[in-house]
Design a protein around this nucleic acid. Structure first.
Lengths: 197, 197
DNA sequence: GCAATTACATACCAACTGGTATGCATGTGT
DNA sequence: ACACATGCATACCAGTTGGTATGTAATTGC
């Protein structure tokens, strides 16, 4: 599974070679096709068991369990670039990669990926909503739209940084997203001076 | 060229089939390979001659030539979903698609794509800078970082909407980006009431 | 201790892939 | 009018792909 994830992550699903995975793991074709009927099923399993779980541990769970969701959201956004393997800047977000590649080509992929993305969105949404109750987010904010945008921009930042091959660009880009979320907060006096950008 | 663009747009570069392009255009393999030595060169030509030019006409040129760059930027962001073929929501931004697919795999692709992206970024940057001179953008705004973020979020919105297969999601997402740009403006009284989100 | 299922390994295959070698017809420069 | 380059068409090729058919060893159920 790990090997399959790795191969798919750096080649994309279609270009991922079964032969490479076999060579990497030392397995034989018979062994693999005994457990997975098709390459597609293997790919879907990677989404569900690897990609989803990683996001769960890295983002979803902390965000759901925090008592100060906005603070946590801001912290995650600010530090995500350090909590992730360095090659992720070069290779991009596995979820986004698969979305861009497979969504138009295969409904099942699209559904599964949309499922994971949906959890992400709902999690951020929940955080914003709770933050709104705590008065950390202004009352008139459309938290659903904001959550959608946060996730979208997030993926966008990774994608652009990947193309530019620049961890630094990723950092400054996420900092802007950080600023956007801060912009949803009431304009009270804050510890750090409120930066416009 | 148009046919090649189309094929690449919906299959991705690697999965794009030369045979399909030939069938679609009625050309023969000899004819194509007479003008393009390799598939890769064909792909690069598509980037330069089709994708770049489209963005140029749709975004870069209006933005560069406008005397009220911020107004123009906001308008483009607000209306881009109507100025683009409907299947672009399903298929995504051709530039972003290629970036996600090819950047880690091929340096030349990465460079060319980064070039186009750079123009985009520089164009937005120029707009923000001019807007700053006009007092439309607050003085303390880091316009370079903001421009990078605008482009990133832009692509992110398209990418997510593509996965969700939802033009509506694209619209609401771009509306948030619209809000972000407005957030860079001075907090003076505006025609439309300043919406927080 | 025998039957049957599971877990693999090997060999093989049809379908495509991008790319090329060759052939030929039409200009084109001199 | 003759040499030569250009523009294209056909046929072909080696490599790779995902997938399968067949065989065999190990495990399990009874």
């Amino acid at each position: 599974m790990q090997s399959a994830f790795c191969e798919i992550h750096r080649q994309g699903f279609q270009a991922a070679s079964i032969a490479n995975i076999l060579q990497d793991t030392g397995l034989t074709k018979g062994a693999l096709y005994h457990h997975f009927p098709t390459k597609k099923v293997l790919g879907l399993a990677v989404i569900e068991e690897i990609i989803k779980e990683r996001l769960e541990g890295l983002i979803f769970k902390p965000l759901r369990e925090s008592e100060r969701p906005i603070e946590m959201l801001l912290e995650i956004i600010a530090t995500i670039d350090k909590k992730v393997p360095s090659d992720f800047v070069m290779l991009g977000c596995p979820l986004n990669n698969l979305m861009q590649e497979m969504s138009p080509l295969d409904e099942l992929f699209q559904e599964r990926l949309a499922g994971v993305l949906g959890v992400w969105q709902k999690t951020v949404e929940g955080a914003l909503k709770r933050g709104q109750k705590q008065g950390e987010i202004r009352a008139e904010v459309d938290y659903k739209a904001a959550a959608l945008f946060v996730v979208s921009a997030w993926e966008g930042c990774i994608g652009v940084a990947k193309n530019m091959r620049s961890p630094k660009a990723f950092g400054t880009c996420m900092k802007q997203l950080h600023g956007y979320v801060q912009g949803l907060m009431p304009a009270k006096v804050e510890k750090g001076r409120r930066k416009g950008a």
